[in-house]
């Protein structure tokens, strides 16, 4: 009933084609409109297309967005080491495989260094999204560990203010969900670079300790 008259009537054919064309075009126009409205925000990143490739997922200014961690304020040596471990497929958790292996595949070493230096220079904002009640215990674990349960102090490597150093990452202010997932994944046998003691550290942490640490760290400035 609907299709047959168009096919039989030659006069209406061009209009149908136009409508079909518009049906295919409209979503592209919407996307263009969105990109246009977001563009001024992206300009904050210095207008560099390499930086924009990162901030598409890692949030405006590299402050992190949902599962993509904050890059702002991260140690440049750490960022470089992670780009390397994505390229060499040694960081192997599901999102790394799905997104980051491809994302860094054609990144030249000098570009990786420049991006790392750029994001390290952006002042980070804390996620503040943990449980403030659990954070109290998290702070104790962070500073002292739990010696009787063989849980090492995080402070010894990540620093008094969770700021990190060299290729040891800043943890302060990262998102609760990211911190929690990473600690769980270390314990589940996923890898991230070589020669790190994190698999052993994470194995000693139970779910309550992980939630407490992730909560505390999300508030650290």
């Amino acid at each position: 009933m609907t299709e047959a008259p168009f096919q039989m009537c030659g006069v209406r054919k061009p209009e149908a084609r136009w409508r079909r064309l518009m049906g295919g075009m409209s979503w592209k126009i919407v996307v263009l409109a969105i990109v246009g409205s977001v563009a001024p925000v992206l300009a904050f990143d210095g207008g560099d297309s390499q930086v924009r490739n990162c901030t598409w997922c890692h949030g405006a200014g590299g402050q992190g967005y949902t599962v993509a961690p904050r890059l702002a304020g991260q140690r440049s040596e750490y960022l470089e080491s992670q780009i390397k471990s994505f390229r060499e497929h040694t960081r192997d958790n599901p999102f790394s495989r799905q997104y980051m292996w491809g994302a860094v595949a054609s990144l030249a070493p000098q570009d990786a260094r420049d991006l790392a230096a750029y994001f390290a220079s952006v002042p980070p904002k804390p996620a503040n999204d943990g449980d403030s009640f659990l954070a109290v215990r998290g702070k104790t674990i962070y500073l002292d560990g739990i010696p009787e349960a063989n849980v090492a102090s995080c402070y010894a490597c990540h620093g008094p203010n969770a700021e990190g150093v060299r290729n040891i990452p800043r943890l302060g202010g990262l998102a609760y969900a990211y911190l929690k997932t990473r600690l769980e994944q270390w314990g589940q046998g996923y890898h991230s670079g070589m020669g790190t003691p994190m698999p052993v550290v994470a194995r000693s942490l139970g779910p309550n300790e992980i939630e407490a640490l992730a909560s505390y760290l999300s508030f650290v400035r």
Binding site: N150, A152, S153, Y155, A156, C157, P160, P197, V200, S204
Partner: peptide, 28 residues
């Protein structure tokens, strides 16, 4: 947790996986 193996693993998380030392925020 009180056993020797577990305690050794604990020491080595900071002092290096073969006791060779480790550079964290502080040198171990």
């Amino acid at each position: 947790p009180g056993g020797l193996e577990a305690k050794l693993e604990y020491c080595k998380t900071c002092h290096g996986l073969s006791g060779q030392g480790y550079r964290g925020y502080f040198p171990m």
